[in-house]
């Protein structure tokens, strides 16, 4: 038997630092519509790997503020991109982690977010009307971080989630949609923030979630689909909120996540041998943190933010990760 694989933290830190230096690369520009999210993923991963200061704080805050869409009252994904609820949450999360929330016009952002709630209770991503339970969760979390949750129509919001529940205990993107682990995460976490976990058939959902683990240790997002590192977070976060994280095999999953590391250039991919990216790096590291992998900070599965941050804001909910190994 060879040595146990280890998370190569210094290499992943270097990888995340290098992401901003690819400006000669076409792919860098083709993904500008995800830039704000990417900064959030990068910063969160660094924070969890105890390297929060590896990116320049001032530069990051200025970048976030340069994405403010004055007309709409929200943040875009990149300067001159339209405001969108997803970029807006990432901006808020970054500013919370950098202790710079005072830079935000809280009244205007709150208004922008609340303006996106539809009569059915779900939220649209922007003024053009795409709806999804992802956007509902984003609204709930953003309002919570901004201290404005009391302005939300909770009954209406919970009502929509309730109507997305399927017989397998899971939730889909919209009413009628098939259960999907990422949508299960957003619905479960939104209900946790709203203290309405009673809406969930917890026994059935925890069963469905535990069945996401495949013989190779990885997790899939739906029955009879392939494993993917990012599901480590979607499935594990929901299981920790239900306090059933021990219903899957943690050792096998840790091995799977580590097998998707790029040990040459850093970063984690969706699967072994694939191209790494900051999204899978963040969700791989977050998954490892929930599994108690040694040397990492705790991640809060409800907010997908460092637990220290949500605790300091008095927002910690009742979830359980696996004990930190030494």
């Amino acid at each position: 038997m060879g040595a146990e694989p280890k998370l190569n933290i210094p290499l992943h830190v270097k990888y995340i630092q290098s992401l901003g230096e690819n400006k000669d690369d076409l792919t860098y520009h083709l993904t500008a519509h995800l830039r704000m999210n990417a900064v959030y993923w990068g910063l969160t991963a660094l924070y969890i790997m105890k390297n929060k200061d590896a990116l320049d704080r001032e530069e990051m805050i200025e970048y976030v503020m340069s994405c403010w869409d004055e007309q709409a009252g929200g943040f875009g994904a990149h300067p001159d991109h339209d405001a969108h609820i997803h970029a807006t949450l990432s901006a808020i999360q970054i500013l919370v982690m950098q202790d710079a929330l005072d830079r935000v016009d809280v009244d205007r952002v709150t208004k922008f977010i609340l303006s996106l709630q539809q009569p059915s209770g779900v939220f649209a991503g922007d003024a053009f009307g795409e709806i999804d339970t992802r956007f509902l969760y984003i609204a709930v979390q953003a309002l919570s971080l901004l201290g404005r949750l009391h302005e939300l129509d909770v009954e209406k919001t919970v009502g929509y989630i309730q109507r997305c529940r399927n017989f397998d205990g899971g939730f889909g993107a919209i009413i009628g949609a098939e259960s999907h682990a990422a949508q299960v995460f957003v619905c479960t976490a939104a209900l946790a923030i709203l203290d309405r976990l009673d809406v969930i058939d917890q026994e059935t959902l925890a069963w469905w979630l535990s069945e996401r683990q495949l013989p190779n240790g990885g997790l899939n997002g739906r029955p009879e689909k392939l494993e993917d590192v990012c599901y480590s977070f979607w499935v594990l976060s929901a299981l920790s909120i239900l306090k059933k994280l021990n219903w899957i095999d943690a050792d096998k999953l840790i091995k799977f996540i580590l097998s998707a590391e790029d040990l040459e250039h850093g970063g984690i991919a969706d699967r072994p041998g694939d191209q790494p990216d900051v999204f899978h790096t963040q969700f791989g590291v977050a998954g490892l943190s929930l599994l108690g992998y040694p040397g990492l900070e705790d991640i809060d599965p409800v907010y997908c933010l460092p637990a220290k941050i949500t605790e300091a804001k008095g927002l910690r909910k009742d979830w359980e990760a696996l004990p930190r190994r030494v």
Binding site: D25, D262, A269, R271, G273, D274, Q275
Partner: peptide
Amino acid sequence: MHGVKRIRYSREALEAKQ
């Protein structure tokens, strides 16, 4: 990114690509 195989470029190949 999903399902994109990792490609290793030699330095020459990378420069040519850029």
